[in-house]
Design a protein around this nucleic acid. Structure first.
Length: 297
DNA sequence: CGGGACTCCTGCCAGC
DNA sequence: TGCTGGCAGGAGTCCC
């Protein structure tokens, strides 16, 4: 599921549930997800109050009292379910939901259960177990193995044409692959890379370095960055709706569907005004790429 | 080092 | 209906 907008939506949904509440208990139902849980995982979390939730790329960072940070990556299928039987969370709004009758924490893919103050339970489920959790000292986050080589946040001040030019300069790898590389820009995944390249009119197949001249980035790099930001911001705005459906405790499919210009639209007409092209699907580095060969150059 | 292939795991869906 | 193959939004590792 989650690329940056989905992770940000999850963070926003969890923050009012977790922030200020103490973790009373943690149960890990198995020794690992994608990776083994760190030593003393549950005991180090137990009893600590949650200070705040932040996000870096596709990681949720749960800051705890005492300078400890719980790092969570949702992988492909990780999700949190909030069980709030007594309605302890104020203002349960669109981002939240209460457990439907009968919903529990005992499914085969319910791997971690956090019990918070207020009889709240937070269930982490992950069928494919590509997600993972780790612990780090807040002071060491920047140098933590997951973050030390990571590129700038696309929605922050750290991303500019000049910074991106430095990273793409001379690179022969396809532009699509370069944008998926978290060391270049942090948080993009397969869907939003496809969408951003379409919006910027750039072919996923061209060499990443071809965007950069000796004198600096071509103007289209600015267009690409703008496209990335608009697409991510739109997706975050829509995220409440997608998450509500995605996370619905009753499993019912909602009516909201995020609309993509190219992703998942193989053989359908390109949606760019005045473009007569057809969306194609190719495979790059083992992943599907959707693009329009007529208007993406 | 850059770049590509492969891998982990399970669920779902199209096609036969 | 039941099986099979392909595919899935991530990212670390390994090899050339």
């Amino acid at each position: 599921m989650p690329e940056l907008p989905e992770v940000e939506t999850v963070r926003r949904g969890l923050a009012p549930v977790m922030e200020g509440r103490r973790i009373l208990d943690v149960a890990a139902r198995r020794a690992d997800l994608r990776f083994a849980f760190p030593p003393d995982f549950t005991s180090r979390l137990k009893g600590r109050r949650v200070e705040r939730l932040t996000r870096r790329a596709k990681y949720i960072l749960i800051h705890l009292e005492g300078g400890l940070v719980l790092i969570v990556h949702l992988g492909m299928t990780g999700r949190f379910t909030v069980l709030d039987p007594t309605g302890a969370v104020d203002g349960l709004g669109d981002f939240y939901y209460q457990a439907a009758a009968g919903a529990g924490a005992d499914g085969p893919h319910d791997h971690v259960v956090f019990t918070l103050e207020g009889s709240i339970r937070l269930v982490y489920s992950d069928p494919r177990r590509f997600g993972f959790m780790d612990l780090a000292a807040a002071a060491d986050l920047e140098t933590h193995k997951y973050f030390k080589a990571m590129g700038p946040e696309p929605l922050g001040n750290g991303l500019s044409a000049e910074i991106l030019a430095e990273k793409l300069k001379g690179r022969k790898t396809p532009l699509k692959s370069a944008l998926l590389d978290q060391a270049n820009i942090a948080g993009l995944g397969n869907i939003y890379v496809c969408e951003a390249l379409h919006a910027a009119g750039l072919s996923p197949k061209r060499q990443a370095g071809s965007l950069i001249l000796k004198s600096g980035p071509k103007p289209v790099v600015d267009s690409l960055i703008r496209a990335i930001r608009v697409i991510l911001e739109d997706a975050i705005r829509a995220g409440g709706s997608t998450l509500r459906d995605y996370a619905g405790a009753d499993g019912a499919k909602g009516s909201y569907q995020q609309v993509f210009a190219v992703y998942g639209r193989e053989n359908e007409p390109c949606l760019r005004p005045a473009c007569a092209g057809t969306v194609r699907r190719i495979v790059q580095a083992g992943r599907s790429t959707f693009y329009c060969a007529s208007c993406q150059r």
